[in-house]
Every structure is written in C-alpha cells, then in structure tokens.
Amino acid sequence: MSDIAGSNQRKTENESELYPDFSQNYFQLFGLQEAYTISADELEKAYLTLQKQAHPDKFANDSRQQLVAVQYSSFINKAYETLCSPLLRAQYLLDIYGISVDLETITIQDHDFLMEQMELRETLAEIKESKNPQQELKNLMQSINEKITGLQHQFDDLWQNRNNESLTAAIPVLHKMYFFYKLLHEARIEEEQLLKI
C-alpha cells in the first residue's frame, strides 16, 4: 500500500498522466497526412517521440499508469509496424475507407498474373540446381522487387483518385503485392540456405 501512496510524491515533472486516444487512426496518431507515400524519417521521428512519452518504463513507479502505458505503447508499436510496411499500409488505407481486405483468403482471377506467379515459383525451385545459384537468386529477387515497386506506384495512383471505382480497382493490386511479398520471403529463405546462415 505504501508503495502506491509513495509513488505520487516521487513523480517527477516530466512524468505526466497518460490519456491515450485509441480512436485515432494511425496517421492521426503520428501526425501524418493520410497517404500511401509517406516519409519514413517523419514516421520514425514521430514514433520515437510518442514512445518516449508512452513507454511503460516511464511509469515504473506507478503501477496503475503502467498498465495504461503497456496498452498505449503496444498500440503505437502496432501503428508503426503497419505504416512502415508498404503492404500493410496499403491494406490499412483501404480499411479506413471501409474496404476490409483479408489477405489470407485470396482469389485472383487474373490468368496472366497466375501464370507469371507459377513461372517465378518454378524458377525459384530450380535455382539450387542452376550453374550460379547465388547470382540467379539475386537476379530473381531484383525482378520481384521491381514488380513490387510497380504495384506500389499503381496503388498510389488509384489511392490518389480515391473514388469508388479506383478503390475497388486497388483491391487486386493489393492482392498481387501480397503474392510478390510472399515470394520474396521464400526467396530470402532460399538465400539463407545458400549462404548457410
């Protein structure tokens, strides 16, 4: 009991009460303009400033405030993680406009795209047996990255227009992005095996 009573007296000036607003969207939280293209530096700066205020370590003397801080600090971490990732950021922007996209249950009707995916996966599977697997893999990863960049530009254009039609058109772009990210992830695992790390 004495611990709680004592903690109020020990509170230093910079240790203020925490009243987090969990209803803010992630862009509002970091004071950023709602957009697909964002400045990584600005995001990082805002993130660190917020964590400096909200981290539970700042409330080590106050168990009640610390519970709030754990929630708030977790919220900030999740927001940061979402906005950092070009894939999650795209998904989140659509979500703000009421379009919830479940990336795990995807149906893509684009025949050409599916053919391309199958070819890329075959290339990846056969890379181990190629003459220069490391170089081949590097090339493959580069081309995947180029595809992703292209899709990001597409998404950004559609987002800038932001009408019913363009937002609907953005959904398959997001799906395709997800496919490529998954492929990139698998390529990285392959690379780890090649580098023996």
């Binding site: 240790e15 660190l48 080590a60 003397n61």
Partner: peptide
C-alpha cells in the same frame, strides 16, 4: 533511471 533517481536530461528509452 526506472526508480526515478535520474534527472530528466539523462533520460534514455
């Protein structure tokens, strides 16, 4: 730092 013994300008996170 956690005990609040530290001054604010040495604050680290």
């Amino acid at each position: 730092l956690l005990a609040g013994n530290q001054t604010a300008d040495n604050d680290i996170l």
